[in-house]
Amino acid sequence: MFMAGYGGQGVLLAGTLLAQAAIVEEKNVSFLPSYGVEKRGGAAVCTVVISDGDVGSPVVGNPSVAVILNQSSLDKYGPRIKPGGICIVNTSLVDLSGFPRKDLDIIAIEMNAVAREIGDARMVNMVAVGAYAARTGAVSIDALAEALKDTLPERNHRFIPANVRALEAGASLIGKSGQV
């Protein structure tokens, strides 16, 4: 899984959470972050490889699943998604009208709006992870909720319920068929 956005959207935290949830489910996993030299506002990208066997390369050229949180990430990484792959897009910040690829399963979610609706605009990353988990079945929402304890520092544990609500909100947008 490949996730891209800008610094401050919580991309790296989301990736860490996914990796931690994979550990909860006793899977193998690697989490590889990459970011600009700026602390805020630069590009933020991470790759999470979840596997029942050995995790080989932490770098993936053509990811089968991509979570795209802003426009520049779609422009840059959209062409690299594996044909037939899944692309989960935050349409609050991304305009899909010019996106040429027809060979992808595109899941459009207005993540900023969803996050605001549940009461915290910062939870865009959790909405994205919830949708990803529900669509791919890579990890369960329960495992993600459990993993929050190890991922968030102790002082932020009071925010766990809000994070779980955001994960569930993201997951609920994926229907039983796996479609929005």
Partner: peptide, 9 residues
Amino acid sequence: AVVGQMKEP
């Protein structure tokens, strides 16, 4: 930076 920044079990 790959093996330094990467997280794994």
